[in-house]
Simulated scan of single mutants.
Amino acid sequence: MKNEKDLVTVSQLANLSGITPRTIRYYDKIDLLKPTLIDKNGHRKYNLKQLNRLQQILYFKQFGFELARIKTMIDADDYNIVVSLEHQQALLAKEVKRKQILLDNLKQTVKYYKGEINMTNLEKFEVFKNELIMQNEEKYGKEVSEKYGEVKHQQGIEKFKNLTESDYQISKDLEHDLIKNLDQINESNLPINSELGKLIFEQHQQWLKIFNDKYTKDYHLAMATLYETDKRFAKHYNSQSKTDVAATLTKIIRNYAK
Rank of each mutant, 00 (worst) to 15 (best):
D28S: 06
S145P: 00
H176T: 02
N47M: 03
F60G: 00
N47P: 01
F60H: 01
K235G: 04
N255H: 15
K147D: 14
Q240T: 04
Y219P: 07
T72V: 07
A247I: 02
Q240C: 08
G141H: 03
K34Q: 09
H153I: 02
T229P: 00
T225N: 14
V96F: 11
E195K: 09
D39A: 00
L13A: 04
V10H: 02
E187A: 12
R69M: 12
D230R: 06
K29F: 12
E131R: 07
Q50S: 13
Y113D: 09
K2T: 06
K217P: 00
N193I: 01
L32I: 01
I57S: 03
D77W: 08
S239A: 11
L58N: 06
S166M: 13
D167M: 13
I210F: 12
L174A: 02
L174I: 09
A14W: 03
D39L: 01
K147A: 11
K97A: 15
S84M: 10
H87D: 12
Q56Y: 07
K111N: 14
F160R: 07
N121L: 13
N136C: 05
G42T: 07
M1F: 05
A68R: 09
Y227W: 10
H153A: 05
V127D: 02
N130S: 11
Y79V: 02
K242R: 13
D177N: 12
E126V: 02
L13Q: 03
I38S: 02
I38T: 08
R98P: 03
E187F: 07
T23E: 13
L196H: 05
D28Y: 03
I157V: 15
T248H: 04
A222R: 07
I253L: 05
T216R: 06
Q169A: 15
T225W: 05
